[in-house]
Computed example of a mutant assay.
Amino acid sequence: MLQQLLRWPVRVLTGLGSGLLALLILFEEWGWEPLQRLLARIGRWPGLRWIEGWVHSLPPWAAVAVFALPTALLLPIKLLALWTMGRGHVVLGMLVIVLAKVVGTAVVARLFTLTQPALMQLRWFAWTHAHWIRIKHAVLERARASWAWRVARVIKRQWKQRWRRR
């Protein structure tokens, strides 16, 4: 009886968690390549070119440290944004969180591109990456099969057609 009673909340929480994970993955999918390319262009600037070369030549464990650095640096900023929201400045806090997410995604995407050969030398990282890719593809496949995804694609197509006509 208790198991049957708990099934509904578990399904709701699982669905909510899957939906949030799908949104996160979709954001990463949308932003990863374009933001990485933007930072690659910026990285060609004379003063920054040597930094990219240095990051690319790092040994595996140093690459892990550099790859984890943006997360560690952005955490206090996100916590400050939450504090700001708690003080009644919700829009400002949300803008800071969104900006931190975009900047963090751009930096992590570029760092991953630069450090991927070194990171993949670590067995645990290669294993984790392979599992993450598998999970990501399964979530994206499920999201793309959903009603919401199909409706969003139709709306996107309509917006593109309207934009082209103008």
Rank of each mutant, 00 (worst) to 15 (best):
A68C: 12
L39Q: 02
E141M: 12
A100N: 04
R164K: 14
A63M: 00
A109S: 13
L58A: 04
W61K: 04
L82R: 14
M120A: 09
W147G: 02
R49K: 14
L48H: 01
A22H: 05
W132A: 10
P70Y: 05
I77H: 05
V139N: 02
R164D: 07
V108Y: 11
L74A: 01
I155V: 10
R41V: 02
I97P: 01
G53D: 09
G88L: 13
W149M: 00
L24Y: 10
G19N: 01
F27A: 15
V108K: 11
L24F: 10
K78A: 06
P9K: 03
G104T: 05
A22K: 02
A40N: 03
I77S: 01
P46Y: 09
L69F: 12
M85K: 04
W45S: 00
R162K: 13
G17M: 06
G53R: 12
T84M: 14
L23E: 04
A63K: 03
L5Q: 10
V108M: 14
P117V: 05
E33C: 10
P60N: 03
A109D: 05
R110S: 00
I133T: 15
V151D: 05
R7K: 13
V102K: 07
L122Y: 04
W32L: 12
A152W: 11
Q4M: 14
L140P: 01
P9G: 03
T84F: 04
R153V: 06
L48I: 03
V151G: 03
R49G: 15
W159R: 10
L16D: 01
R44Q: 07
T115M: 00
R142E: 07
A40Q: 06
M85T: 05
L75G: 01
M85Y: 02
A145M: 11
E141W: 15
L13S: 06
V96T: 08
I25N: 05
L111T: 09
T71F: 07
K160T: 07
R157N: 15
V139G: 00
I77E: 03
V154Y: 06
L95N: 14
R165K: 12
A100C: 11
W159D: 08
L6M: 11
L114I: 02
L95H: 10
W132I: 07
S57H: 13
L119T: 08
F125L: 08
P9R: 01
L92M: 09
A143T: 08
S146C: 04
V96Q: 07
L75M: 11
M94I: 13
L74S: 00
L6C: 02
T128L: 10
A145C: 12
